[in-house]
Amino acid sequence: MTSPEVRRGPLDDDTAAQVRRLAAAAESVDGVAPLSEQPLLHLTAAAPTVHLLARGSDGAREGDGALDGYAQLDLDAPGTASAELVVAPGARRRGLGRLLLDGARTHAVEDRTGDPAGRRFTVWAHGDLPPARALASGAGLSVVRELWRMGVDLTALPADGERRPPRGIEIRTFEVGRDEEPWRRVNARAFAGHPEQGRISRADLDARIAEPWFDPAGFLLAERDGVLLGSVWTKVHPARGDEDAVGEIYVVGVDPDAQGLGLGGALTWRGLEHLRGLGLRRAMLYTEGDNEVAIRAYSRAGFGRTGVDVQFG
């Protein structure tokens, strides 16, 4: 088995399309997407990433250029490096996953631009599937973080919930070209301790706004006297095959100075109302597995755990 090809920075469109097809093939078998949103956006973005591309691991396809495995290493955060990887269903149980994992970890240790001692290496496993657990364990990695997926039946929500925002606060839709920087400032304050959400750059935000799913009508901002205090951003995952479209509470953020007003609950409810108004029957969100306050709040709103992503380090 040959070593994976290593590339840095954005991939060409053809190679990026191959990665997306590989991820889709894995998802059709595993029932969960192997790569999250950020790595997919970084396929063609000018981001500090390392791509590992494995071809021809299946003897029946040797030499035909087929992409059998892919790993991406995110080097954006100083001192840390986070990887995600996927192996084609027909190329599994041949050591390719371990080859990609070891390659990503090697690059994380050798890249010293963020830390002279090397970077702390982590890898995500979406769906917490047994083969991923075994791969991580065999590489000496253990669970360091859990990200819960929670879902709710929109048709079962009460007709009127925490709809009204706190007194003096108005809610309006996001305006492209006006609200990017104010939103980023509040988002950074709201998620100051979050390893991903708290460091959303303008390029990251612009990339999401450029995505086909972006709809400013589902991006709601809460203001008092023209000052942004919080927001709820929704997303719609289109129907696929026998699966109906699903709404997502993509991000809910409240400025620390506005905590305790009940704004987070009001914004979440407005987001759910928006998704229900689109005719969707279900909605979902992600939250940290150790965030007991958020989990209790979402549980009161009718959400229940539907899955978990696990980070190993």
Rank of each mutant, 00 (worst) to 15 (best):
Y70A: 05
T234I: 09
A190N: 09
E243T: 15
A136T: 08
M284D: 10
E211G: 09
A159Q: 04
G65M: 06
A117I: 10
A81P: 02
G271P: 05
S28H: 05
A136P: 15
P131M: 09
P4M: 00
L278P: 04
A297G: 00
R240W: 15
L73E: 09
E175R: 15
P130G: 02
L147G: 13
L99Y: 11
D13S: 15
L53R: 09
D13E: 15
R119S: 02
R172W: 04
Q197W: 13
A125K: 07
L261C: 06
G95Y: 12
R119E: 02
G65D: 08
G31F: 07
A125H: 10
L67W: 00
T287K: 00
A239G: 06
P131C: 03
P165R: 11
G277K: 13
G138E: 06
L205H: 06
R163E: 10
E181M: 14
R94E: 04
E27D: 01
L228D: 01
S201Q: 12
L75V: 00
G97A: 14
V87G: 01
A26Y: 02
E196Y: 07
G114R: 07
R55E: 02
G262T: 07
R184P: 12
A46Q: 12
L157N: 01
Y70I: 08
G151C: 13
L267C: 02
V232S: 05
E292C: 07
G302Y: 14
L75T: 01
T44A: 13
A283K: 11
G168Q: 06
G226P: 03
R208E: 09
R281C: 06
L272H: 04
G138L: 07
A192L: 14
A159G: 14
T44R: 15
L228A: 05
R305F: 01
A16F: 15
A91I: 01
L85K: 03
R119D: 01
E223D: 08
T306N: 05
R20L: 12
I200E: 11
V152G: 01
S82D: 14
R300A: 02
R55A: 00
R202W: 12
D68G: 13
G247R: 06
